[in-house]
Amino acid sequence: MDAAELKRLFVQAGPKWERVQEIRIRAGRPVTFLYEGKECCLPGNAPADKYLIREIMEIFSKHSLYAFEEEIRQGFLTIEGGHRVGICGRAVPDGDGLRTIKDISSLNIRLAHQIIGCADGILGWLYENGDLKDVLFISPPGAGKTTMLRDVIRQISDGSCYGAGMTVSVVDERSELGACFKGIPQCDLGRRTDIMDGCPKALGMLMMLRSMAPGAIAADEIGSQTDLEAIRYVMNCGCRILATAHGNTIEDVCRKPVLSEMVRSGMFSRYVVLSGRPSPGTVAGIYNRELKILWNP
């Protein structure tokens, strides 16, 4: 099977693209996709092979795999439209890290979706007396924290009944929040949003703070020590932080080395915990700085 055949089979299967969450392609195994939370197969259980995977990688990278070297080392690449492609294969070690991944055998294509208005239900909890609070969104992978953060950024930037519009700077290290193409965001992040695409979070936050005079800075998937230091610096400058982190519950976050320090020192005033059940984006709870539950739907 080649890429053209794969495309034809998808057209034949006829899923609504806005409801497809991810596509899994494994060498020697049938291609599957997650559709509204359920795993589906292509017609005839068509299996993929390593040539198909190689062709897909060439297409995704625009025949320029060298331009995605850094991302491939981290096990993924982000393609046009903000879709993230996770890759697996044979790792080539280099000291403590990886030089590259070769003989790629599995791809997990996670499709980015913008759901306008998905943050309507929680937006009021992120403000207090018209002031935006520092917010951390917590959820397991695929449970909708990036989609939720994207809509929160849009609403904060445009302004809402809870607060006036505010300049938001987005540090989009993995090009998922804005889905930038040639620097222009393809997702609506609001009229007062500036975006630094592909920039390491800690570096980008400090650059944005110095250059764009933001009211709030947003970043996806924080968790390293350098992130912690940059966030602390940004907060000391009176700028609000909107961020996401991996975790199933608030207790889960409290067990992680860097994130627990953020929680202990009360850096965030709101924690929004999301769950993938029954569907991505389900709010499991909103907590305050002292980890007291404010809203338990």
Partner: peptide, 11 residues
């Protein structure tokens, strides 16, 4: 363009 800007080949 390739080495400094890390541009893809079409870019």
């Amino acid at each position: 363009q390739i080495l400094y800007s890390n541009a893809t080949l079409p870019e």
